[in-house]
Write a protein that binds this DNA or RNA. Sequence first.
DNA 1: ACTAGGTGTGAACGACTTGTGAACAAGACC
DNA 2: GGTCTTGTTCACAAGTCGTTCACACCTAGT
Lengths: 276, 276
Amino acid sequence: MSITESHRVEQLDAGLSFAATPALRIAVVDRDTGFGTVLRRRAESLGWQQRDLTQVPAIDALVSMRLHALVIDPTLLGPQWAETIEYLRGNLPEMAIVVTTAPSSVGQRVRGIRAGADDWITKPCHPEELIARIESIMRRRKPAQGLTREPILAGDLSIRADQFQAFCEGRSLDLTRREFELLHLLADNPGNVLEREEIYQRVWGFQMAHGDRSVDVFIRKLRQKITLFSPGWDYIHTHFGVGYRFSPELPVAEKPVSAKAASAKRKAASVGKAAA
Amino acid sequence: MSITESHRVEQLDAGLSFAATPALRIAVVDRDTGFGTVLRRRAESLGWQQRDLTQVPAIDALVSMRLHALVIDPTLLGPQWAETIEYLRGNLPEMAIVVTTAPSSVGQRVRGIRAGADDWITKPCHPEELIARIESIMRRRKPAQGLTREPILAGDLSIRADQFQAFCEGRSLDLTRREFELLHLLADNPGNVLEREEIYQRVWGFQMAHGDRSVDVFIRKLRQKITLFSPGWDYIHTHFGVGYRFSPELPVAEKPVSAKAASAKRKAASVGKAAA
DNA sequence: ACTAGGTGTGAACGACTTGTGAACAAGACC
DNA sequence: GGTCTTGTTCACAAGTCGTTCACACCTAGT
């Protein structure tokens, strides 16, 4: 029983730090601007940002909005509404999709939810309930979302999220935003192999299209810039058929041997470098 | 638009393998046994396990049920219903909580959802909608994979899903992706004999063609690489006419009874000779 | 034992993945 | 309107890996 007790305490603690929903960005797609207005009053008092739209934007535009939730009336989507929801869900798996409609049939609701909607609310609907339901969905979010805000030190590099930039011995690597986000993601999971799909998903924000080489190209740019400032280290390692792994290592000219030998060589190399 | 198209197709593919929600365990707490009965018919046809209860069990009992979702009517919880939900949510953060009630006020719904309910459905409610909503909640959970993400220790090996690689005393076995996935699948079901068909299905992702020997070939490659790093252990065992079984065993030099052991010995001897 | 079919093994081909440079498109800024 | 920066797409080269095939060997039932 004491175990259960300690359980509870921990859980509640975790719950509290979670419950304080941070400011969310939502968009309302509806013809009835009145509903958006009412909702906005409540949302903004919570510090949320709300955007009112009269149609669903293109995926790229949606991505750049970095929404947490989309509130949508499917009557605006035409007969292909379910496919549209499926499409949105596929490309923005992190974004909550809340459907609001006039009274609907069970079949419609099931179809919408199966297509990827997180909730289906019948209008008229109290804004407070809508907000509570969005919070409920957000609560389920995988916490893996955020990356460290702390500076990351790896090899000769320091990666600073607060600056959106990486430095080597105080000098900026002059990374672009995407380059930095890619490096930050990799460096935040040192030693782990990240698949291309996941990288794309987390840096670009949507599903990777088949044959897209963007990740490879940015890896090349990253390696180029990093090598320029910090040669003598291998930071990004390719895993054939899988993806990339970040892990600062001294390239062993001879052959991959035991970790002990590698570390010895590392010491030697760094000494040599210091001397030079 | 062609990009968007290929996008979509992939999504549907991914969606399919996703949509097949694995068997869930749910419990229904309600006075109206009729609702539970109707729901059970649908749930069991999906392979779900359902348990009908007339009151909320103690936390320990709930924990041991390992439920994915709890469907509950708050009128059974008395005046402290919201606190009870909060308590459940705190102690079982992974479990979905779905509230079903007769028509209720906005205030009640908001309170219930804020307390931790994942959804609030008004009765009467179609079982299909309830199921769809539970699936929607489950969709937000990450893993979705059938395999463990935790490192697996077996004999001298450690198999790490996060690295897509197996190690023996810290040294990488240098497995390719397929090799690793095969080993991972086997090692995740230690002691179980997996049929070729199933292996192919789960590693390659589609139906095995008649006469396909890929599984055999990869088993050989695996055994080769594993033996290289960890001789002295038998990890993968052949079951004639069936498939393979993973189970780290120390081959007993004594028992010459089994023909299998004999052939293994012969093999080892010939390898040794070749090396010498 | 004998045989039919299942399994182990090695090698070779071909398909796919990745690295790389450069052209192209889209915005930001002056 | 230009120019610069940034991100995307293309084409080609160089590797890597997966599949297939042939053949030897083993198993199980007759």
